[in-house]
Design a protein around this nucleic acid. Structure first.
Lengths: 110, 110
DNA sequence: TTCTAATATTGACGGATGTCAATATTTATG
DNA sequence: CATAAATATTGACATCCGTCAATATTAGAA
């Protein structure tokens, strides 16, 4: 079953549903940033930031690079771009809309 | 404070983080659909669907129209479009990126 | 090696959320 | 009015998640 489209897209939206993580994405979208610099812009604990960065990394939205004791983070533009195009298809009202596939599959089952 | 950008966008992403709701959005993106028709494509209870439709309506992503005993749902393309443009700004690496505002505000505070 | 700064991990807590069964409400029909 | 179909609401349950304090790890500097 190709529900992966909704599951995969949903997972990324879940990650982006937290306002703090959205702000982090915003911060690292312009330039690479280390955790301690990101932390300056937020009102959270260091352990909480570390947790958010782990979540952002695990879903692929953010990459990390280690330099001495610093960990530098940057946004993965390709993953973001892919998410946008998936969402475009889901919300499309034309023939490239995913729903046509669902409806077809549903018809086959009945 | 203008964290509303992240809070508002986060709320919509939260709604879209559920795979079932993503599929519903997909279904109603092409044409208006009543709840009973939507239900045919899903593997959930009627009460669960009703709950999801309430969530989708409350955040503005979906509109409803009542006709006799049927409730017809459709996607609000403007809300979707606005969400996309907000996300574009958040993930932008150019000067229209929101993060510049945050950084400026942060500088002022220090 | 010892100290310090940066980051990660663990454990715990409270609140939010998706799901269902059961029931209520609405509206057309006989 | 009585019945049936479509939808909404309520209450309960289990799970997930963001947060913090405390601790551990890593790596350069003295």
């Amino acid at each position: 079953m190709e529900n992966n489209i909704y599951i995969d897209t949903g997972k990324l939206f879940k990650v982006l549903s937290d306002p703090v993580r959205l702000q982090i994405v915003d911060l690292v979208s312009c330039k690479e940033m280390c955790a301690c610099e990101i932390l300056e812009y937020l009102s959270i604990t260091q352990s909480t930031l570390s947790h958010h960065m782990k979540v952002l990394k695990e879903c692929g939205l953010v990459s990390s690079r280690k330099d001495a004791t610093w960990m530098y983070y940057s946004l993965n533009a390709d993953v973001v771009g892919n998410l946008k195009s998936q969402f475009d298809k889901i919300t499309s009202d034309t023939s490239d809309c995913f729903c046509y596939t669902i409806k077809k599959e549903c018809k086959n089952i009945k």
